[in-house]
């Protein structure tokens, strides 16, 4: 995994942005403050804070072995069936842990509003799998292909926003999304030199903004109020 540099109005904001882009939690990352930034005087000479995050020690977690996968599958199956749903569970190893794919008919209630049920199943299953196997592998869950579909949808939204941003020469705001989906938007456009992305807003309103590269703030922001995030800050 690579390192990520991001900027923000404060060091804290820059760290949050960098972690989001890197898909790391604070515990998983080493954080280097490159520039603490400066508020400037009446907005003159204001600099944004910049930080770099790198994955800590490359997470020496080995891929889960067959037994861990089997245990996880069994726990997921039992949980879902005790909840009154009939579904099958397939597990496979991922880069950072394991993925449990729950498939079946009529799983809407389990998925929940905006996938909140999946979130809950994931929280509970990771705790159970960690307890049962002693591993700290990341446990990811999808139910009825909901997250896979959302991922495709978000990627498509992001590409469309990029085309529009370039065509109209202005920033395009995507609808609010959770961290997982914002990350999909960022990574989808990471390879597109014509646009840069960043996140804006807080809490439920946090969303990705796509703007044409080079449009935004000049390298040395002379007069702009310090609110404005920097372009290289694609800062999550």
């Amino acid at each position: 995994m690579r390192e990520v540099v991001a900027s923000g109005r404060t060091v804290e904001e820059a760290i949050a942005a960098a972690l989001e882009r890197a898909g790391l939690t604070r515990e998983e990352a080493e954080i280097h403050v490159l520039d603490e930034g400066s508020r400037g005087v009446f907005g003159l000479g204001a600099r944004e804070a910049r930080v770099r995050v790198v994955p800590r020690a490359q997470l020496p977690e080995e891929p889960p072995d067959a037994r861990t996968l089997a245990t996880a599958t069994e726990i997921a199956r039992t949980l879902v069936s005790k909840m009154g749903f009939s579904a099958s569970v397939l597990a496979h190893a991922t880069e950072r842990g394991l993925f449990l794919d729950v498939q079946g008919e009529d799983l809407g209630l389990l998925i929940g509003r905006r996938g909140q049920g999946i979130e809950a199943v994931e929280t509970v299953l990771s705790a159970m799998v960690h307890q049962a196997t002693g591993s700290r592998a990341e446990v990811e869950v999808d139910i009825g292909g909901y997250r896979a579909r959302r991922r495709q949808h978000v990627a498509e939204l992001a590409r469309r926003a990029a085309r529009r941003a370039v065509a109209q020469g202005k920033a395009v705001h995507l609808p609010p999304m959770d961290a997982r989906e914002r990350r999909v938007a960022h990574t989808t456009l990471a390879g597109d030199p014509k646009v840069t992305t960043r996140s804006e807003g807080t809490g439920e309103a946090r969303h990705v903004v796509v703007e044409p590269t080079g449009r935004a703030v000049p390298a040395r922001p002379a007069r702009r109020p310090p609110r404005r995030p920097q372009p290289q800050g694609r800062g999550a």
Binding site: M83, F85, G117, T123, A127
Partner: peptide
């Protein structure tokens, strides 16, 4: 553990129980 960081586990448990209940 049952409550979790920031109440995360308790929230997840309630979500599951609610879904199973509705079911």
């Amino acid at each position: 553990k049952v409550i979790g960081r920031g109440g995360r586990m308790a929230r997840a448990l309630r979500t599951l129980v609610r879904a199973a209940g509705v079911r």
